[in-house]
């Protein structure tokens, strides 16, 4: 089991890519979630949206669809699209690891979103691979930088008072 560790530099690059996608796809909101439902980053208007819940439900959605795919002998359904009265959401899996979701309305179109998502997927995949490599290296070499290096049992106790 490997944990998901995000460092400052990768976060900045992911953030930049999401913002680019948000603008080029003319989206309302773009967000990246890990497969377990933790929100990684987002771009766009998150006012009035509970992004934590959104992240968890999106991951649940992908997990459920993945379950259906398995039952049907598919590896996965890598793209989901939900069409609403006003807003639509395009959800796809990136690098088999994280979920990219794009919320958009009539100011954009499914075609544009698909095209832009495809382009961003490549960029995000590269960042994620580098992140994995780095996380491995950090774990081996620079344990002293870990948030847990200095944490004592008392610190943990303190949290629960």
């Amino acid at each position: 089991m490997s944990d998901f560790v995000m460092y400052e530099e990768e976060f900045r690059r992911v953030d930049e890519e999401l913002r680019r996608l948000y603008q080029l796809a003319n989206a309302k909101l773009v967000f990246l979630v890990d497969k377990n439902g933790q929100l990684i980053a987002s771009a766009g208007d998150t006012h009035n949206i509970d992004t934590t819940a959104l992240a968890s439900l999106t991951a649940g959605n992908i997990a459920a669809t993945g379950g259906i795919a398995k039952l049907l002998g598919q590896k996965e359904f890598s793209i989901l699209f939900h069409e609403g009265d006003r807003d639509n959401i395009h959800i796809s899996i990136v690098a088999n690891k994280v979920i990219l979701a794009v919320l958009f309305d009539q100011r954009s179109s499914l075609g544009i979103v698909r095209l832009r998502v495809k382009k961003s997927t490549g960029a995000l995949t590269r960042i994620l691979h580098e992140m994995d490599k780095k996380a491995l290296g950090e774990k081996r070499g620079r344990a002293e930088l870990s948030p847990f290096a200095e944490i004592t049992d008392e610190d943990i106790d303190q949290l629960f008072k």
């Binding site: 089991m1 490997s2 944990d3 998901f4 560790v5 995000m6 460092y7 400052e8 976060f11 900045r12 890990d34 377990n36 439902g37 933790q38 990684i40 948030p147």
Partner: peptide, 14 residues
């Protein structure tokens, strides 16, 4: 699998 984000300085556990 926890998620440790150094940028927003968050630790998320499930």
């Amino acid at each position: 699998m926890s998620f440790i984000n150094y940028s927003s300085r968050e630790i998320n556990c499930k």
